[in-house]
Every structure is written in structure tokens, then in C-alpha cells.
């Protein structure tokens, strides 16, 4: 089946997500009929079978989701969502900052900038449930953590600060940035989970 992968392109790390999904599709042996494209409007969203919400500034992206009339369309979007960093913040039911209006798609509470400022950003090898082979080299940039999850949310990775990767239905969310670097295993896992 052909995947139609939309990347929410309001602000942030958009082109890196597009490149990572293209690489993942190639590695999975998908033909050129699968597509990866930018999503800026409800009409674009209607074209997608799955959606990625990239990292960026969560307060800015939240504002622009409202401004672009995407809040309700994303909430009722039928496909899986691949969310990273700011994207994870937006997927939550509760966020520790009133300036963000979360989409409420994964039952969890997320704390923004949980590690501190940019100087506290870090890289580390992280075991992620469901991944075969070596740990995932995770890049945390002013990253959030999940402080609470609902019963049906599956925790994929946890560190001493809190939960940093979750799965819920067709959705996945990561505190870190799988789109930085050449390891596409998490992208592939997500596409596989969504039937591709």
C-alpha cells in the first residue's frame, strides 16, 4: 500500500522529517508511488494517510495550528501521528504551560523544557522498546518529558527524568529527535505499525 506522509510545516524541523521519511521508505523498499509532503492547511491534511508533527517551538506551533484552522482537523485525523519534541508536547492531554493548547490525542501530561536550557541539551544511547539491535542514538534538545500517562499508553523508553517515548494506538511520540541522524528505525516502526 502507498503511504501518503504529511509533515506539519508551520514552523520547525520540517525538511529533516521529510528527508528521514524518504530514507525510511527507500530502506523499506517502497516504490516511488509513496509520497512525503508538507501540510499547511486542512486541505493538505485531507491528503495524508499519516502525519508527522516536528520539533520546533511548541508555543509558536500551537498558535499557528489555531491560526491555520488545523486544530479540529488534526484532532479528528484518522491516521497515525509521529510526533517529536514540540510535537510530543502538542499530542498531550495536559501541558505545564497555558500558552500551549494541546491536541489531547495521547492521554499524558508533558512538561516542557524538562532538562533545562540549551546548555543542558544532550545526546545519549537509549534503549527503545520494540527496536531490534543497538540502542537508539537519541538527541535531546530543550526536550520535554512525560510526567504521567493514561493506562492504555504504552511506554517505549524511560530515563531517570521521566518517560521519553510512548505509543498509543496508531500514534507515537518522542521527547528526542529521530529525524536528526541517519537511523530511520523509529520511522520504519511507525510506518509498519500503520500498515505500510
Amino acid at each position: 500500500m502507498d503511504a501518503r506522509i504529511g509533515v506539519l510545516a508551520l514552523q520547525g524541523n520540517v525538511s529533516e522529517h521529510i528527508d528521514a521519511f524518504l530514507l525510511a521508505l527507500e530502506r523499506m523498499g517502497h516504490g516511488s508511488s509513496s509520497e512525503v509532503f508538507e501540510v499547511r492547511s486542512p486541505a493538505d491534511l485531507a491528503e495524508c494517510s499519516v502525519l508527522a508533527i516536528p520539533g520546533g517551538e511548541s508555543t509558536t506551533i500551537s498558535r499557528l495550528i489555531d491560526k491555520n484552522s488545523l486544530y479540529d482537523p488534526i484532532r479528528v485525523f484518522k491516521g497515525g501521528i509521529f510526533a517529536t519534541c514540540a510535537g510530543m508536547v502538542l499530542m498531550a492531554t495536559r501541558v505545564d504551560d497555558p500558552r500551549v493548547r494541546p491536541l489531547g490525542l495521547i492521554e499524558m501530561t508533558v512538561d516542557r523544557n524538562a532538562f533545562g536550557r540549551q546548555r543542558e541539551s544532550f545526546e545519549a544511547d537509549l534503549p527503545v522498546a520494540g527496536l531490534v539491535g543497538k540502542p537508539f542514538h537519541a538527541v535531546f534538545i530543550r526536550a520535554p518529558v512525560v510526567s504521567r500517562t493514561g493506562k492504555s499508553v504504552k511506554v517505549l523508553a524511560r530515563i531517570n527524568k521521566g518517560i521519553v517515548a510512548v505509543e498509543y494506538g496508531r500514534h507515537v511520540a518522542f521527547s528526542f529527535h529521530p529525524e536528526l541522524g541517519n537511523d530511520t528505525r523509529l520511522h520504519e516502526l511507525f510506518l509498519h505499525k500503520n500498515g505500510y
Binding site: 524541523n13 520540517v14 529533516e16 546548555r119 544532550f122 545526546e123 538527541v139 534538545i141
Partner: peptide
């Protein structure tokens, strides 16, 4: 073995500002 202040973290931070 946490690594701080790497080139990837610096450029990654800058990249998050795109479109802003």
C-alpha cells in the same frame, strides 16, 4: 555517557528555529 554541547546539538537547536 551523556554528551553535551556537540555540533549536532548546536545545529539541531538552530534548526528548530526554522520558519520562525
Amino acid at each position: 555517557e551523556l554528551r553535551f554541547g556537540t555540533e549536532l546539538l548546536k545545529r539541531g537547536f538552530a534548526s528548530m528555529q526554522k520558519g520562525g
